[in-house]
Write a protein that binds this DNA or RNA. Structure first.
Lengths: 211, 211, 211, 211
DNA sequence: GATGAATGAGGCTTCATTCAT
DNA sequence: AATGAATGAAGCCTCATTCAT
């Protein structure tokens, strides 16, 4: 009476569906992706798909959770090796390991925006989005607050407000990146400029300088 | 030879449909609005609606154009009375007549974002979005450039780049405002902070200060 | 209190609509022609069109009647100058003045076939089609009968039956001509062959010969 | 791994839809048949129907193919037992097993004509119709050619041309039969006359005689 | 657990015809 | 008479989700 398939197998199957679904969402976007697209990409039957995820929303949220786990993991790691400055840590959370603005964007971003924006009138979805917003907010705010406490950052602005501006920038950039042709958005340059903004706000010494 | 109804009446009818449609789009968002919703809100028959607008996309774009005309008109007006500083002009374009950050957001913004984001894989829509982006970009960039030329602004940054950061901020804020509950987004405070960012970048005299 | 527009003018207007409609029906076929197509081609308003013809069916029937009048007129003329043989007369009715098979087909034929075939379950339309069939039948049958009476044709077959076979041939050829690409139907050759068939049946002297 | 229902069941379901659809097309004709009619007649849901046939055209073509298969099968069979004369074979292909003109017509004929006639401006449809025409043409032409080669038929006419006249006759008769009331078309008599035409053309010994 | 056939609500669009002016 | 805005029935098709096997 032991399960016919190992727990391990199930996890792998689920993960493979999730992987395929991610690709599909990246390609078609949230609204325009159909369960059929996912089925086909994942090589699962309709029923099979619904066994793992009870609907499209559920499926997408699972993908979001995965991403969150990864990110959380990353930032946690980053935090741990916080031998460097809080500024450096902030840059790492924003731009990854190398703490430097680049032209890379999360390819799933456009779909995420779609998901939350088209679902903004759905209470459940909105609550979920809000939760995610607040988690992100806290990560940034905590770092900033710590930096202020230790005197690395000036205290002119509330950590929370700066943190919000970071998220707003990130969202705005993702939006422009989603809508415009590749060569029209200067992701790297804009990121660098925003870093200057932050630098002025947090460490401002008189003139806007690159680090 | 004379039409059954006056030209005026037609314009009004069209305008009234547009008005009703705008309300519907604000309420349900672009994707979730159906032509039926619009019909009912506008008190038009199916066929009547299609007489004016050949499909949902067409209808929405008509609304966008209206908005553009208004905006263009405004900014033009603003530009005319440009007796004030370029900085003031910039603030006016961003925040309206009174040049001061407030909590007001264009209620149609969320739908606009939806429209462009869900349509990002459609060539036509993307081109249209790009055009709009570039028009907006130019408005800001021109003001900044003029300010730099006349020595009002420092020339550290390219006008184009600063202009982009403004749009990115506006889009990002609209996005957050669309997704989060009213009380979670600090539109006014964030706007004020962003103004500080700009102030530092364009007029920075050493320390981040409020105007 | 005299009519604002002359009777003449009305007739001309009607005729011009009819002409335009004919072109449209030729181009799109009966089913796929819309009243809008006609309006535009004729340069009439919707209401104007309906003033003259109360619906699409009515309009098409008017065109049919015109054609009938012309044909009737022609065959009448032909009959009058029936100095020639009945055979020649038959050929004239079938192929026109020159009594010789050519590749010309009535361009409206396909639409006529459509009209009667799609309307075959409509009593009114069916009756109308039947009437037309019988009129055509009679024309041919009368000639054949006369030819038989005067000893020009052999009496092996009933005039009515031969007449039917002519119509069937004409309809069949029109059908094939309507459906197949220009170069796939050998209108002229088939017509010539059918003439041979008739020749054998009516004047057969032993071997199938061309006249 | 195993499908929920047997392959057999699927085939039957498909066949039953096809059967029901055939009845509906016979009753209403091609143009006037709606997918809803078919759904209801077949006892399938909208989605179910579209699972098997992606649109009305597809559905009708499936019916046509079925017919073709049957016919091909028949003529193949007939050809096999070609112990009899080529003339007899020709009669069999035209009139079925008993090689004798009767009053039976394919009840689906009118819809077929409609299908090809209303679709004559559609490239795809036209190509399909042409293909079918040519297949039919070849069947007749091959028999006639063989008959000529073996001296059974005279060689006065090209096999291809005679074959075309057969199709034209069949189409024409189907057309008249479709449009006119039952008792107005003399299917049997006309068929017999046409056989005489053929007899004269292929085996003509001087006078038109019944076989 | 898996399968995929079946469901049916829901959306879009067209077009013949009417009717107030 | 003429106009063309307005109507609304009717058709087509998609797709998330269910459920018998």
């Amino acid at each position: 009476m032991s399960p016919r398939v190992s727990e391990e197998h199930l996890k792998q199957r689920r993960a493979s569906i999730l992987k395929a679904a991610t690709d599909v969402f990246i390609e078609h976007g949230y609204e325009h992706t159909t369960m059929k697209h996912v089925m086909e990409a994942a090589g699962v039957s309709r029923g099979g798909l619904y066994q793992y995820f009870s609907n499209k929303e559920d499926l997408f949220e699972a993908i979001l959770e995965e991403g969150l786990n990864e990110e959380a993991h990353q930032s946690l790691e980053s935090l741990k090796q916080s031998s460097a400055s809080h500024w450096h840590l902030l840059m790492q959370v924003m731009f990854g390991e190398d703490a430097t603005p680049d032209a890379e964007m999360d390819p799933l971003s456009p779909s995420k925006l779609e998901f939350f924006i088209t679902g903004r009138n759905d209470e459940r979805r909105r609550a979920y989005g809000t939760k995610r917003y607040e988690i992100g907010l806290k990560i940034y705010a905590d770092i900033i607050e710590a930096g202020q406490k230790e005197g690395e950052f000036r205290t002119t602005y509330e950590p929370d407000l700066i943190a919000r501006s970071i998220i707003t920038f990130v969202d705005g950039l993702a939006l422009d990146h989603a809508m415009l042709p590749e060569d029209k958005v200067l992701v790297k340059e804009q990121s660098a400029l925003f870093v200057d903004y932050l630098n002025m706000a947090l460490r401002g010494d008189g003139s806007p300088v690159r680090e």
